[in-house]
Design a binder for these strands. Structure first.
Length: 793
DNA sequence: TTAGGTTTAG
């Protein structure tokens, strides 16, 4: 029998394994070792639903954890089970079971990079002669019986409105407030008459939860091991607490750690992967519990107010308190009660910020990097109880610093002011510092963003003197030196036709159209001055220009679409899997999400296109952050269809894609299955638009430049998708950094408050063309094949 | 035991 269900009695296997089998550890599972008669033993940490492959073969995947290897980071391995064996295993395998896998085939794991598991996976099937022994403590079932079975220990969860004084309970909650773990003051403990007193200090974390009963519970958690406290990173995270003691304190229920307390923490965003953060090596987590998390996310999305996007340094305003996700690049001792952290987040604070004077020898961190980023780093002075933790953080770490005070401070004569950043002593309002792991999604996002900034290569800088460094790398541009440079070199450059000779503007104005010219001119003024007004949508078919629809319109269309309930007959087709929830509020809104499959399998979220019915604007944004593409749809009798084209038909990252109402003929969404069936679906907006019968509107910058050269003045239009500013018009409205970059480019081309003589020269190509305007032809000019110089953007 | 949410005052 290739799948055998056996018992563990008093910690030992009830029936020993055949003696010819040799146990193999994870480190032996690679090429070059003989795996004949070998077996691998591990505990089921995770299992996936039984699915069918393209050819109809049953497929079942489990993750086994090596219980002999607690130390290494990669101590789990994927096991892929095929055919009849998959079906049998899926019926009986439970979390926490011990599996022995014998006669397996070893193959490179294509997902090792993503899932962080072993570089190889095990493939097993009846055909290959594989054998799986399943050992279970919890189901006393006769060997080889694969009939219906009772499951692993069942935890009972108490909702927050049913807590009683003096009980120990299990519960779920959404984090409404938290203090990141900090070292408590500790207490003197009298150990014995001889050894005297020692100070015992635990880490403490205070967490306030709320659940759909709308009752709050504040928990005070202690543990000597920082890692054993819940890994909460932001308000809105969801926690599962096991064995928390409930007490009454000041007339309210309070949660406190009891012996055996354990916690799991999950990201609270709808659609985010359900991956528990925990310090426990082994924990139970069933499909049923996964569903609870998903339901709590949906409840939170529609019932709790979120604070909006986290503040970046570029959003800082005087007097505010804010949480900052950032990277530590330098640190220094200041005095006994304060410590300096130098951090950056890739944006620039719009106000002058203070620099805390420290001795150069006290400053820790990569000197070259500190110099290179000096204009975008800020000094945060942390006090008192935060000093000890701050000292221990390695430079390069990613942090979230909670409740930083941006304090406005004035010079003695009050003529100038600057912003000081303080992390004051104490833990009020959750003040504190949390070190984020590299796996954290916000850290991944920040790293990608910092990486995209394309910093000068620091390796080549090692040998340079500090004077040279000063001259070479002004990372965030000092406007004055920039202007000096621009007075010598043109601030725009040509991308083609280098051999064409310059023509004076006067000669151009006196010529007939159409013609092409190369010019050298200065930008006297431009419109619109508010750069966000320069972005429009363009239809290349009917050549119309449209304003970008208001977000409120989208919201209204979404609200209108919730009137049509999802049609369950359209769920779970050959090319997508569906899930549906009902919100717990009085609206009882139904939300359906359809995850498009590839090769019968669900892909990683970042490769997945999903369609959503009944979602709110906020939910859709959150999903778009996590998944490759989101398409809002509604049910008809026989297919899903797109919403009104005033709404974006597709969201990708933070870009909304619209279709031209005039030129589009929407097709049923099942047309998307043709892309899903491609070998590697790239989910490109142009291709999606094409199969859906949508004429895609392109984001474009439209600006009017008034150019002068001493012989005349001429208005030329800039019509640019991406080339001129080297910034995609589609991304500018949702990206602060790109907006700053564009503003800086315009400030360089046309510095405010400068005399004409001091403006930089621009080299441009322009073309003239005729437009029939009522009675007569008028000549217009358009800039082409020109881009802002590399060192301007 | 520690803290028990509700901003330092440098």
């Amino acid at each position: 029998m290739p799948v055998q269900l056996l018992k563990i009695v008093k910690g030992k296997f009830e029936i020993p394994l055949p003696s010819h089998l040799q146990k193999q550890s994870l480190e032996h599972l690679r090429e070059g070792f003989d795996h004949t008669n070998g077996y691998f033993q591990g505990i089921v940490a995770l299992s996936y639903p039984l699915t069918k492959l393209g050819d109809g073969t049953d497929f079942f995947k489990v993750v086994l954890q090596d219980m002999d290897d607690f130390c290494s980071r990669t101590n789990s391995i994927n096991v892929l089970i095929y055919g009849k064996m998959a079906e049998n295993c899926a019926k009986v395998i439970c979390h926490g079971d011990t599996l022995v896998v014998a006669e397996f085939k070893l193959a490179k794991s294509p997902t090792a990079k993503e899932d962080g598991r072993h570089n190889y996976h095990l493939e097993v099937s009846e055909e290959a002669g594989s054998v799986i022994y399943i050992y279970t403590k919890t189901r006393p079932t006769p060997a080889s019986e694969t009939a219906s079975l009772s499951v692993a220990p069942k935890y009972v969860y108490t909702s927050l409105n049913h807590l009683k004084d003096g009980t120990v309970v299990n519960l779920y909650g959404i984090v409404k407030f938290f203090k990141p773990p900090y070292l408590s003051k500790g207490t003197d403990v009298n150990i014995s008459h001889n050894s005297g007193r020692v100070l015992v200090a635990d880490y403490c974390s205070v967490v306030t939860l709320v659940d759909p009963s709308n009752v709050k519970l504040t928990c005070t958690l202690f543990n000597g091991n920082l890692d054993s406290l819940p890994k909460i990173y932001k308000v809105g995270d969801i926690v599962r607490f096991h064995r928390i003691k409930v007490r009454e304190y000041n007339g309210q229920m309070q949660g406190v750690t009891s012996a055996g307390f354990a916690s799991l923490t999950f990201d609270g965003s709808v659609g985010a992967p359900v991956i528990p953060r925990t310090s426990s090596r082994v924990y139970t987590f069933t499909d049923e519990e996964q569903k609870i998390i998903e339901e709590l996310r949906v409840w939170a999305a529609s019932n709790l107010t979120t604070s909006g996007p986290p503040a970046k340094l570029s959003d800082v305003q005087p007097m505010m308190f804010f949480d900052l996700t950032c990277q530590l690049i330098g640190k220094a001792k200041v005095d006994g009660s304060s410590f300096l952290l130098k951090v950056w987040d890739g944006t620039k604070c719009p106000y002058p910020t203070w620099k805390v004077p420290v001795e150069a020898r006290d400053l820790e961190g990569d000197k070259v990097l500190l110099h290179q980023l000096r204009e975008v780093t800020v000094d945060i002075l942390v006090y008192d109880n935060h000093v000890q933790l701050a000292k221990s953080i390695k430079t390069g770490s990613f942090l979230r610093i909670y409740s930083i005070h941006a304090k406005q401070a004035y010079a003695v004569d009050k003529s100038v002011s600057h912003i000081e950043f303080h992390l004051h002593g104490g833990t009020c309002y959750g003040r504190g510092i949390g070190v984020l792991p590299e796996s954290n999604l916000d850290v991944k996002e920040l790293k990608a963003f910092l990486h995209s900034m394309d910093l000068p290569d620091s390796q080549n800088m090692e040998s340079m003197s500090s004077v040279e460094l000063d001259d070479t790398f002004n990372y965030v541009t000092d406007l004055e030196s920039h202007l000096q440079r621009c007075q010598q070199l043109p601030a725009t450059v040509l991308t083609d036709h280098q051999d064409l000779k310059n023509t004076e503007l006067k000669a151009i104005l006196n010529s007939t159209a159409p013609k092409h010219y190369r010019i050298r001119a200065k930008l006297r003024t431009y419109k619109p001055q508010k750069l966000y007004q320069s972005v429009k949508l363009h239809c290349s078919k009917c050549n119309s220009l449209q304003e970008i629809p208001d977000g409120d319109d989208f919201d209204l269309i979404l609200q209108g679409s919730t009137i049509t309930a999802p049609n369950p007959e359209l769920h779970n087709t050959s090319w997508y899997n569906s899930v549906m929830w009902t919100t717990q509020d009085e609206k009882q809104r139904k939300i359906a999400i359809h995850f498009v499959k590839h090769d019968e399998m669900l892909q990683q979220p970042e490769d997945t296109l999903l369609m959503i019915e009944g979602g709110t604007l906020k939910e859709i944004w959150k999903l778009a952050e996590r998944f490759k593409c989101v398409i809002p749809v509604r049910s008809t009798e026989d297919d899903l269809e797109l919403l009104d084209l005033s709404a974006p038909f597709l969201l990708q990252g933070n870009v909304k894609y619209y279709g031209c109402k005039q030129c589009s003929t929407p097709k049923p969404v099942k047309s998307l299955s043709s892309i899903a069936a491609e070998q590697r679906p790239a989910w490109e907006p142009t291709e999606i638009a094409q199969v859906l019968g949508i004429e895609l509107l392109q984001y474009v910058f439209i600006m009017k430049f008034t150019l002068v050269d001493g012989t005349g003045a001429l208005n030329a239009y800039l019509f640019d998708y991406e080339k001129f500013f080297q910034i995609p018009a589609s991304e500018i409205l949702t990206n602060n950094f790109l907006q700053q970059k564009m503003q800086m480019a315009m400030n360089t081309l046309c510095p405010p408050g400068r005399k004409l003589d001091d403006l930089p020269w621009l080299e441009c190509f322009i073309k003239s063309y005729n437009v029939r305007d009522a009675m007569k032809d008028r000549v217009y000019y358009q800039i082409f094949d020109t881009t802002v110089a590399d060192d301007v953007v």
